[in-house]
Amino acid sequence: MNPRRKQRLAVVGIVGLLIASAIGLMLYALNDSIDLFYTPSEIIEGKQGQMPHVGQRLRIGGMVVPGSVSRDSKSLAVSFDLIDTGPIVTVTYTGILPDLFREGQGIVATGVLTSATEITAQEVLAKHDEEYMPPELAEKMKGIKHEKPANMPITDASSSYQYDATPKLESNSKSKPELEPESKFKPGAQ
């Protein structure tokens, strides 16, 4: 390479490095504000030493605790518990839940903190993981049975999916919630 090109390459490289590190530092400083939501443990134990205060508007993301969903029979009001690694936060919501909402599912709710462990939500969004597989495989690996929402009995509105209550579910269900994108997919691992 001739010296002029070498010099130009060096200048471009150094400027690029400076810009990259400036933006890196900026993002590092903004780290907490870029997070879309608080996890239940961050609400109860505080995030970076700061506790969210009652009355604060915030988003929470966690996994719906199986068995915690309770619905009002006369209205659209629903309440459920969210968990990540330990602490549990209760969310109450009035409105239509997304199709993917079900027990064991990751969800993100926007609302107001009404007490230390309670949130009244105005919006509930479903989060899904990065795994895609046919229903038969899911049934074999996870013990989740896919049923079309249309076939559902109206009385049981808790979920369009039924967990069959065999010990297989116990052994396969993740002890950790699915919020971290690190689930392993191994077809035929069973």
Partner: peptide
Amino acid sequence: SVEWWNTLHQGATISKFDQPSIAPEM
């Protein structure tokens, strides 16, 4: 972004150094 921060968007399915999290026929 999906690894560094909490996001609604799920993690990577195929562009990662792990086995893809999608069934082969898909």
